[in-house]
Nucleic acid binder design. Structure first.
Lengths: 217, 217
DNA sequence: CTAACGTTTGTCCAATCGGTCAAAATTTGC
DNA sequence: GCAAATTTTGACCGATTGGACAAACGTTAG
């Protein structure tokens, strides 16, 4: 599982020239921008091609179908997206572990909002392309971490609650600052909606989760 | 403000026949279904027409442009969507008020998931059609309720935090169960992902928010 | 230099899109 | 029952879409 990180799902990784590697990267970057703001069906190959600075037929030389771009994007995304949860570890203080998980997820919402929105778009539409991954790899990972959290509860290190819904709550509150960024900024206004909003959010979330999880609060 | 509920934004409400009222309702219901799962650009008039059981030209007799359907839908949506927050009142126990707000929002996620997803879709794409409403009416409402919550904090009724981010957290956690429903069910699996998942979520959220907000926890 | 290979482009296509229009069918007011 | 108004339909249109394709262009190894 750990050694086969960069392997595509079904086929062997084809040999690629220098130009292919560079151009494919360029396309994926452009596609991330376009897909994350318009959704899959709302995005056109022309838009992506223009954002990547090349013609449509040229783009189609590197990715034969529009769906291939999206698929490649989603594969990469999931890997980095779940990394923080993977790092949630049994060693170390539970409270500290949870706090740093929340912080890391919030940092990802701040630094990779497009990735978050791309993912949100996919889920919103019923996850037609990644459903197997959700019910498979993702569920396995979450169940595993839920067991870790349950251990902490049994040991009296944190309050007893539902670990699955706790993970959902962390996902929801942190990703909210990427997915609903427009709304957040509009509601906070020009003053409080500036760059400091993520620090405010971090402070708030820490208080919400940790005080709420204190054993025998 | 209160008496002019069914008035469209700019024009006078046109006189409508019985058939027009019925068919428009039918179309809006079908459009909610289609838009909420495919997004605006991802949905076609044909899809909506078929879901409404009529031909495309017939649908266009009732709504002249695709955008008109979406606009009408969004206007209605916002009204009902913000109702729970409007009801958040200064009279009554703060903890009880917040708890019932959370419960009500979660019930809306359960009973009106399509409305939630339609809204999420719009925000995700940068809220091109409702931006003025966010920065205007919505911001005003949230600021108003944030002031109420701040009063509770000053009175020592709840812990001191950022009221705006508190409201965001409530939105995020509750709407998560509508917008990310596929993921929630996939992760919870067949057993825990059944109908009981909303009761589990309600229990968890109550514990998370109320314990986290207890004065001098 | 040149042949083989990799890259780029212009042109084209069928399908689908949002929307129009006139004519046919139906409902309504009297 | 009948004329006027409303509703429904089929045929059609221009624009856009994802994608194919062959020819032109560039690069590189021998």
């Amino acid at each position: 599982m750990r050694g086969s990180a960069t392997v595509t799902t079904s086929t062997q990784a084809p040999r690629r020239t220098r130009i292919q590697v560079e151009k494919r990267e360029l396309i994926l970057e452009a596609a991330l921008e376009v897909f994350s703001t318009n959704g899959f069906r709302g995005s056109t190959i022309d838009q992506i091609a223009e954002a990547a600075g090349m013609s449509k037929p040229n783009l189609l030389y590197y990715f034969r179908r529009k769906e291939d771009i999206h698929e490649t994007l989603m594969e990469r995304l999931l890997e980095t997206w779940l990394a923080p949860l993977r790092e949630l570890d049994d060693i170390g203080d539970p409270m500290t572990e949870l706090r740093s998980y929340i912080r890391r997820k919030l940092e990802m919402a701040r630094d990779f909002p497009r990735e978050s929105r791309l993912f949100a778009n996919e889920i919103l539409q019923g996850a037609p392309r990644i459903m197997p991954l959700l019910a498979g790899e993702l569920k396995t990972l979450v169940d595993e971490k839920a067991a870790v959290i349950k251990g902490w509860m049994r040991a009296g290190k944190i309050a007893r609650t539902d670990p699955w819904h706790l993970i959902f709550a962390i996902w929801a509150t942190t990703q909210h600052y990427a997915d609903f960024d427009v709304q957040v900024r509009a509601v906070l206004g020009p003053n409080r909606g500036g760059d400091g909003r993520f620090e405010d959010a971090a402070r708030f979330l820490e208080q919400l989760f940790l005080d709420g999880l204190k054993p025998n609060g």
